[in-house]
């Protein structure tokens, strides 16, 4: 794979979102909570007179705790809805130096669901996130 990746930290791990899928990276202003929305949906915010649904990536993965409040959040557009992704940190834009590859044994239960695969960058390997899967949130816990 070639192309630019937006490098982010989620739950202390290095992850990457293909830059082509990222609408912009913004500084989130006030986030308004949505009562009764799924836990991983932090709330609504606004960007240039458009509503954003703010999603906490750590919770969307089904991991404990919540993302550290990073100053900036990548914004993606899925099916006409804008989502702001809360991550621990937005690092930089890096170039992919390898194809996306699978790793034998997978990436772990929570990560596997949202992973395209692994990619090498100048700073080491990173997990490429399938944002569409990520924003669907953790699967409902079977009773």
């Amino acid at each position: 794979m070639t192309g630019l990746l937006v490098m982010v930290d989620i739950a202390g791990r290095r992850a990457a979102i293909p830059a082509a899928e990222v609408n912009s990276v913004i500084e989130l202003e006030k986030v308004y909570p949505i009562p009764r929305a799924p836990d991983y949906v932090t709330g609504l915010s606004a960007m240039r007179s458009q509503s954003l649904t703010v999603v906490d990536c750590r919770k969307a993965l089904g991991l404990q705790g919540e993302s550290d409040a990073a100053e900036r959040a990548p914004v993606v557009d899925i099916d006409g809805h804008l989502y702001a992704l809360l991550v621990d940190a937005v690092d930089d834009v890096a170039e992919a130096q390898s194809e996306i590859t699978a790793v034998a044994g997978g990436f772990g239960k929570n990560w596997q669901r949202v992973a395209h695969g692994m990619v090498e960058t100048a700073d080491g390997p990173a997990l490429v996130i399938d944002v569409r899967c990520l924003i669907e949130g953790p699967p409902a816990v079977a009773a």
Partner: peptide, 24 residues
């Protein structure tokens, strides 16, 4: 404006809008 599917699931919201001061 329509809401994201994850929010619509809650079944109590029909949409969202921005007020003049920009708050959703």
């Amino acid at each position: 404006k329509p809401l994201a599917p994850a929010v619509m699931q809650s079944g109590i919201y029909a949409g969202t809008t921005l007020l003049d001061d920009g708050s959703p």
